[in-house]
Design a binder for these strands. Structure first.
Lengths: 239, 239
DNA sequence: CGGGGTCTGTGCGATACCGCACATATTCAT
DNA sequence: ATGAATATGTGCGGTATCGCACAGACCCCG
């Protein structure tokens, strides 16, 4: 039986060869990730990076007038805090826990030390960052061209891919914040998708019934992002 | 007098210390960048990276139905082809010349060799990539929340910042492709901005009269991106 | 100098989403 | 049990943008 709290639940950590794993795992710290917890605020220096295992984190931009829009989703396939090793130290966006769970965190300096060894960790982190670029690009495209219902399906699938179960604990209000739309719009989209028999939801819990149907309703953006993540970061544990 | 074709017109190249500059400049090749020229096609392996000097390149996503949306703009502050050193080799987007001019190009392998020396060039490229991340993120936000006119102003300013003059050779049709909107929408937005006395345009040539006024009409997105580029990539030539 | 291509302007109905108001339903605390 | 807080449903007018059709203006070239 795998440890319910095993760093290897995170795909980046799982891909590390023994030597790197030994070095890094010793410094990891398991932290709970409650819903709504803010890991980084816009423009604020980051002290740690986070490797989600059972949690999901949203990168969210909050505008001057308070409106918001999600820029990317990070789950157990990735890491929160790329700007630390990219050299900028901060970003103009906020990182907030979208689905409660756990993550392992590492001190910023320790991650940088490992990154500058120019070993497997660096290669992984750079490839992950490219996948993140794709996700952001596709978010921009999706915001421009696709309907709210398509975006809702895409968002649901992206989140689902980063969770162990078919259930999502998430109110329509919060989803609306992520998508940058009205809460009522989400109600309408979710209603249609439920009527079509693809999901059921009830006061903050969404259960996916028909994944394939959801994929058919989503726009191409979901598939593009998924394919690119699979290409750049094939999930293999280092044996 | 500076050479009209000097690699140091590109800010990344200009920032290199003497040793790196000597190594890299020897391998640079000056290439003309005609309007509409496609540097990379979606998913196709890249052979070179491009350092624009007097040209501007758009990173454009083209959807299955032919609709398109610009993801980022690259000019003399950056490099086209980050996925080469990030490890992915390809991206799902297209790189197309948006404003004619010149660029220096470098063979992909030579860039990678330099990148893996882990010297100043690596540091610069990573910081540039983070700036690119911010630009993409802000494009997503802008597409979600801002009016066409605001986006038009933002786009104009971002392009202007990457050009030596106050004129832009660009039809409304092409701008519409970039912004992912109808051509008529651009006509309307440009008409209003012209009426306000901020620009004049005439059959594919836009001249900016009042830059400050444009900034006031643009959404906050422009300022966020500009500030982040200035922070991450202060323009200093290595003395 | 005339004609064909290119670029821009305008009008009009359709539509997706917004902002707001308010109704209903479920959960929770006391 | 009861009231408060939370979550979802619904209706309605307003608006930005779309899709389409077509007119006018400008430019280049023969």
């Amino acid at each position: 039986m795998p440890n319910p709290h095993d760093p290897r639940q995170n795909h980046l950590l799982a891909a590390l060869p023994a030597e790197e794993a030994a070095r890094i795992f010793a410094n990891l710290e398991l932290v709970p990730m409650p819903l709504g917890y803010v890991l980084y605020e816009s423009g604020v220096q980051m002290r740690h990076v986070y490797f989600p295992t059972t949690s999901i984190v949203s990168l969210l931009y909050v505008m001057e007038d308070g409106a918001s829009a999600e820029i990317a989703i990070v789950g157990n396939e990735g890491i929160v805090g790329v700007s630390l090793f990219m050299g900028g130290e901060t970003t103009p966006s906020r990182a907030i826990v979208q689905s409660a769970g756990h993550a392992y965190r590492l001190k910023g300096q320790q991650l940088k030390d490992e990154f500058y060894r120019a070993g497997p960790m660096q290669r992984l982190l750079l490839r992950y960052t490219q996948a993140l670029l794709t996700q952001m690009a596709q978010t921009a495209v999706c915001n421009r061209h696709h309907t709210l219902e398509q975006q809702f399906c895409r968002w649901l699938l992206l989140s689902l891919d980063r969770l162990p179960s078919n259930d999502l604990i998430m109110t329509q209000e919060l989803i609306a914040n992520m998508l940058g739309v009205r809460r009522e719009g989400v109600t309408e989209a979710a209603g249609k998708v439920q009527k079509a028999g693809l999901i059921t939801y009830h006061r903050g819990r969404i259960s996916v019934i028909d994944r394939t149907g959801l994929e058919a309703r989503a726009c191409e953006c979901y598939a593009v992002v998924k394919k690119e993540f699979d290409r750049l970061l094939p999930y293999e544990t280092a044996s």
